[in-house]
Each structure stands twice: as C-alpha cells, then as structure tokens.
Design a protein around this nucleic acid. Sequence first.
DNA 1: GAATCTCCCTAACAATCGTTAGAGAGGCTT
DNA 2: AAGCCTCTCTAACGATTGTTAGGGAGATTC
Lengths: 201, 201
Amino acid sequence: MSTRDKIMDVALNMFSERGYEAVSIRDICGEVGIKESTLYYHFKNKKDILDSLIEKFRSHIDGLLLHVDEITEKPAKKGKKSDDISLQMVDSYMIDSYLFDPFCNLMLRLMMIEQFHNEEIRALYEKTLFTDPYEIQMNVFRKLAKAGAIPEKDVEWIVKETHSYMTMLTFKYLLNGDLTEKRKKAYYKEVHDFMARRFIA
Amino acid sequence: MSTRDKIMDVALNMFSERGYEAVSIRDICGEVGIKESTLYYHFKNKKDILDSLIEKFRSHIDGLLLHVDEITEKPAKKGKKSDDISLQMVDSYMIDSYLFDPFCNLMLRLMMIEQFHNEEIRALYEKTLFTDPYEIQMNVFRKLAKAGAIPEKDVEWIVKETHSYMTMLTFKYLLNGDLTEKRKKAYYKEVHDFMARRFIA
DNA sequence: GAATCTCCCTAACAATCGTTAGAGAGGCTT
DNA sequence: AAGCCTCTCTAACGATTGTTAGGGAGATTC
C-alpha cells in the first residue's frame, strides 16, 4: 500500500471514531510512521484528506449503483419464486458490498459524525442512507409487481416497511459500536426473518 | 438562567454540532460572555460539562419513563377504538416530550457523535434510541392484545414494524440536519399515515 | 555525468488548547 | 466593623495545533 493510501486508511479509522477535528495531523503521522511534513507532500492540507476520502467514497458507490442497475434491469423470470430478485439484490449485493464493507461502514460513521457542520457531507449522508436505498428497493419491487409476483397497490407500503426495517437495523447493528462478526450476524438474521415472514411464509 | 445553566446550554449546542473535542473552552465562554476562569468556577474541567449534560439527560428521561409507565398501567377501556392508547402514547407523549424536545434532540445528536469513543455514551445511546422505545411499545401493544383489540400472535411483528418505522423516521428527520418545523411536520405526517393504515383503515 | 524528480527528513513558526494562581467587587452573617 | 462566601476578573503556564522552509538520499531522464 502506498504512503498516500496508508494515510487515508489511518485517517478514516481515526476520523470515524473521534471526529475530524479531534484527530491531529501528528496522530495520523504517528500511526502511519511518517513525519508531518511528509504528509504535506501527499495532501495539501488536513481538509484535503477528508475531501479525498469523500471523493473515494463517491466513486465507490457510483460503481455499486451501476452494478445494481444492471441486475435490476434483467427481466424477472416467470415461474420463479417471487423473492428471487429481491433477495438476491438486497441480501447478497447491497449488504455484502455496501453495509458490511469496512470502507463504506467507516465512511457512513464518519458522515454520521460530520453531517452537522458540513453541508456536502450531510447531503451525501442523506443520499446514501435514505434516498438511494429507497429508490433501489422501489425499482426492484415495481419490477416484481409487473411480473405479477405482488399486487401493484401493495408496492409502496412493502417498500416502506422493508426499507425502514433495514435502515433501523443498519443504525442498530452496523453504525453502532464496533462492526463485529456478531453484529453482522445479528443484522443478517433479522433481515432474513423479515424477508421470510414477508415472502416465503 | 444561571451562568451554570447558560454554560451547559451553549456547550450542548456546540457539542451536538461540532463534537466534544472540536469545541474549545474559549468557544463556549465567548458565546456565554464570560472569561475562561469563570467557567472553571462552575465546572472542575471540560469533561465535567459533558458529564453534567449526560446526568441531566439521564434524570430527564427517567422522569419521562415514569410517566409513560403511569399511562400504560391504566386499563384499556372496552368499546373504544383499538388505537386509542397507542396513538395517545406514541403520538402525543413520546414524540412531543422526547423526540421533538430541543434538549433531548440535541442530546441524541451529541450521543450519536460521541458514541464511538465513549462507552458510557454508547450504552445510553443504545438504551434511549433502541431498547427503551421497543420495550415501551411492547408494553402498549401487549396491553391492547389483552383487551382483545389485536390478536396476541401479531403483537411481536406489529411492534417490530412500528418501532422500526419510527426509528427510521427519527434518523431521517429528527437527527439529521436542523430540527425545523418542516422536518417535524414531515415526521408527524408519515407516522400518522402509518398508524392510519395499520389501525384505522 | 549533470540535472531533474520523487519522497522523506529536521526544525521551527504563530496560534490555540485546557487549566491555574491570585486579586477584587458585592452581599451575607457575626 | 470584621470576616466570610459567591462570583467574576486579569494574566499567564506549558502543551499541542496546522503548517512551512529547506535539505538530503535515491532513482530517472537527458
């Protein structure tokens, strides 16, 4: 890993735990194992580290959203169980590559902490935690409705319930305390129980 | 308002926006209109301000919980609509005195920010946002089930859905950006729509 | 072989941090 | 009147903050 990457990695870990302003340049450099002036070779100032992290996160989730669109666009196969697409989507992809991903997880924590005095971060936080997931699930369930798997009129409330349940669990298990295997399993189990009740039983 | 109260008020506003470590003693004193040494007459150090805020919040919600217990203990009147108690409880009391209360709201934001490097705050945060509300709603809906308003077997999932929906809305509207009238109304409308769909329609 | 570029260093800068010593003004009790 | 308590002030302390000037070692280019 390059020095620049190492700096961003250490900074993210510290920012997401203590907050941007509470972490000093010397804290970061000490952990990375470089002198302060070396950091200023790679970043023009402290704010630049934060901006670079946000930029990295932006392009990271842009990639994810593109892939989600690809999956969603595939026509729902008739005769298959109604939960096929949604479970594949929601369970496998979004959870693994987004909520359980260490980089995304720490970025969400960082944004949760910094949202209150940074307009840009607040907007990105709202988009990635509320707007985008809701829209993605809307697309999936509308697709299912068109394939006749669920009634058209139920779509809105099914999405609202699914989305709010997963959002609550995200705050409860994934953005709260350490991201341990135990917490991930607890999250996964509750999501599965919810899905099973909704679509399998 | 006493100087001590003024300090706590200003400190809470700043801590909840920028985080504990990012706010300096001089920031607080400047806003209050006193010199730094005066602050040290009222608090033994910076941490003492934070601890006092937590203590104040603790006794505040203890009072709330006591009142909630009182309301819940009243027997459900037969012949009344099934939503009576729950709506009265959930809508009026908890929302107004807890989620919409400026002091509680700022404390929740502060705890959201500080939970990651303070064990005590993390525990309090988990309790007041997840454990307590879930338990309160459980008590209310179990009461309703005993009165025959809803089937006993539905209680758990009704509570899970209600609780997760309100928790999601709390994060979306009340702990996110400024606590404006607009946001409070948006929160209230969505809760009401949910209740109406569940119990009235 | 000289020059340039990349990446790190030592050493310091003014500003700000949390905190404290000590004094003074006004009101209360003896 | 004397002494004490409450509350605020001025002024400073050592430590830490973000940042910069300038130099040096090693690889690459001309």
